[in-house]
Amino acid sequence: MPEGKGVEHLSHLGSEDTSYTFEYDPSLLETFENNHPNRDYFVKFNCPEFTTLCPKTGQPDFAALYISYIPEKKMVESKSLKLYLFSYRNHGGFHEDAINMIVNDLVELMDPRYLEVWGKFTPRGGISIDPYVNYGRSGTKYEEMASQRLLYHDMHPENIDNR
């Protein structure tokens, strides 16, 4: 596919008039066509500046998000993902809810073969919460993959030295 072909519909990428939404808004997400649908491969986003609000106290919660997926026909455009994640800034929700919402929105948007999101939140009150949520397309090998990765997702936890 020639460079630039199939991306004309993307409204965020290359825009000099980026506006940031402070309320949860999944309509910010945009996709483009996967040029390699015949191959399984992972796409991984590392998002170290995710913020949301505690629904009870209104205090900010900070996390590094790790989003990985195996695309089918559609892929999420990274700037739209950034703006979507930024829209959680004033969203009041528990950590686990936010991560599940992100998975639900990305599955609905792209219909990927496989997707996982791991939120590694900084501690508040001496406890950090690291919800991991994944999805594998039903009736395929990716459904089994999701089951296995869920069971073993934290078998080799990283050294925590940044929080």
Results as ranks from 00 to 15, higher is better:
P2R: 15
E3F: 15
E3N: 04
G4P: 05
K5Q: 05
K5T: 07
G6N: 09
E8F: 10
E8S: 04
H9I: 04
H12R: 14
H12S: 13
H12Y: 14
H12I: 05
G14I: 09
S15H: 09
E16P: 06
D17H: 08
T18W: 00
T18H: 05
Y20Q: 05
Y20I: 09
Y20R: 06
F22R: 11
Y24Q: 00
D25Q: 14
D25M: 11
D25K: 09
D25S: 15
P26Y: 01
E30H: 11
N34K: 08
N35L: 11
N35I: 05
N38W: 14
R39C: 14
D40A: 14
D40M: 03
D40S: 13
Y41E: 01
F42T: 01
V43N: 07
V43P: 03
V43Q: 03
F45I: 02
E49L: 07
F50A: 12
T52H: 13
C54M: 04
C54H: 03
P55S: 02
K56M: 10
T57W: 04
T57R: 04
G58S: 06
Q59K: 08
Q59T: 03
P60L: 13
A63S: 12
A63H: 03
A64H: 14
I67F: 05
S68R: 14
S68V: 14
P71G: 02
P71R: 04
K73Y: 15
K74G: 01
K74C: 05
E77H: 06
E77F: 11
S80Y: 10
S80P: 03
L81T: 13
K82S: 07
K82Q: 01
K82L: 07
L83T: 13
L85R: 13
F86H: 06
Y88G: 11
Y88Q: 08
Y88A: 14
Y88C: 15
R89G: 06
N90A: 08
H91L: 01
G92H: 02
G93A: 15
G93K: 09
H95Q: 01
E96R: 10
E96Q: 04
I99S: 10
D105Y: 00
L106P: 12
L109K: 02
L109I: 04
D111K: 03
R113F: 09
Y114C: 06
L115F: 01
E116V: 12
E116D: 05
V117N: 00
W118V: 03
W118E: 02
G119P: 02
P123W: 00
R124A: 07
R124E: 06
G125S: 01
G125Q: 07
G126R: 03
I127A: 03
I127F: 13
S128L: 11
D130C: 10
D130Q: 15
P131A: 15
Y132W: 10
N134R: 00
N134M: 11
Y135D: 05
G136H: 07
R137H: 00
S138E: 10
G139D: 09
K141N: 14
K141G: 15
Y142K: 00
E144F: 08
E144L: 11
E144P: 00
M145H: 07
M145Q: 07
Q148C: 08
R149G: 00
R149Q: 08
L150M: 12
L151G: 10
Y152S: 15
Y152L: 13
H153L: 06
P157H: 06
P157Y: 09
E158D: 09
N159H: 05
I160R: 03
I160E: 08
N162F: 11
N162H: 06
R163P: 07
R163W: 09
